[in-house]
Amino acid sequence: MKPWKAYLIMMISLPVFWVIVIGLFHPPSFLLPPPKLVIRVLAEDKGVFWHHTKITLIGALTGYAVSNFIAVGLSIAFIYVNWLEDFFTPWTVVIKNVPFVAIASILVITLGDTPLPRIIIVVLVTFFPILANVTKGLKSVDQVLLDRMQTLNASKWQVFWKVRWSSAMPYYIAAHEIAFTGSIIGAIVAEWLFAREGLGFLIVRSMSQYRTDMLFAVTLIASALSVCAYLSVKLIEKRIYRWRKEISS
């Protein structure tokens, strides 16, 4: 089956399933609003939704950019400065394993209502997969290629760019697959905890007002964003790595 067909089927069957459940059980609309209602809310308040979506996206993308910058930079440094990786390992282990919701609460108290906590949380969530993958990728390079480069008297830069980075690329893309969606989730959770804007904030507000229709609308948007993020990475992967696809097919 073609992948896009499978996606189409899923997108059709979800609302169908939704309508069937409502038809069978007749739940009150504050428990399970019908699709019609959710769509109406989306249409009526589209300005509001767009505004908050933009805020969330900007937070996620900024945090993600920072995260990439630090993580890629650090993994490159690991390759060239031997003790650095050992030195940073405990730090990265902590970053990876400390429950970020707890950290987030602390950040909110210390940093207040600024974009900073949001960005830091996104970084905390996405940093480790990128660091781990890129480091592994840069090390995965075949020793025989490095030997070949040495006998050709390649410069350090050439070895890095043409050989190491090329070898690490598939690992880097794999990291995006995990982390890019994570950045959106991270941003929403951060807003959920403290912000006055963004999709996470909309969730909190809808909950306190018992606006289930609103809640469903936000869920729809957030899910669509995450799925789109994931699929766009997949698409890029497919384009760049034709050679992998052709091998496997």
């Binding site: 008297n153 090329s166 070898s167 050679w243």
Partner: peptide
């Protein structure tokens, strides 16, 4: 090493030294 600098040594390793991502 000096001859490598002048690019006068070519090595065919036992295991092919090819980049998987290049044709």
């Amino acid at each position: 090493l000096e001859l490598c600098k002048r690019h006068e040594i070519g090595v065919a390793f036992q295991k092919p030294a090819l980049l998987a991502s290049r044709t």
